[in-house]
């Protein structure tokens, strides 16, 4: 049991590190605000399920007609679907409004 927890924690930390390294660093470099993108998607899609689905579709095959954040050009991210799922989960949890309103 303890081993399973350790493995899961390790996997999470790896993914969190990936998010920090791959997503945050790149977006900071390009000056594209991840929080702003999150709120723009939330305004359009409301729920976690619909928001993540829309983000995933856009990131895997960017379609300018579906682009919400207009300050950046469409960019095809070099990430496989499985990794993207994990990264988007971390992204959602990082910026979610649930539990932050007082």
């Amino acid at each position: 049991m303890a081993r399973v927890i350790v493995i899961l924690l390790f996997a999470f930390l790896c993914n969190a590190q990936d998010f920090q390294k791959e997503c945050m660093a790149c977006h900071q470099r390009k000056g594209i605000d991840l929080k702003k993108i999150y709120f723009d998607y939330l305004l359009e899609y409301s729920s976690k399920r619909a928001t993540i689905k829309a983000m995933q579709e856009y990131l895997l095959s960017p379609d300018p007609s579906k682009q919400l954040y207009i300050d950046a050009k469409p960019y095809k991210h070099k990430v496989d679907k499985k990794s993207l799922d994990k990264l988007l989960e971390i992204y959602w949890n990082r910026y979610t409004v649930i539990g932050k309103i007082r």
Partner: peptide
């Protein structure tokens, strides 16, 4: 509440 009836606040 969100579109999936999940409570936001």
């Amino acid at each position: 509440y969100d579109a999936d009836y999940v409570k936001i606040f």
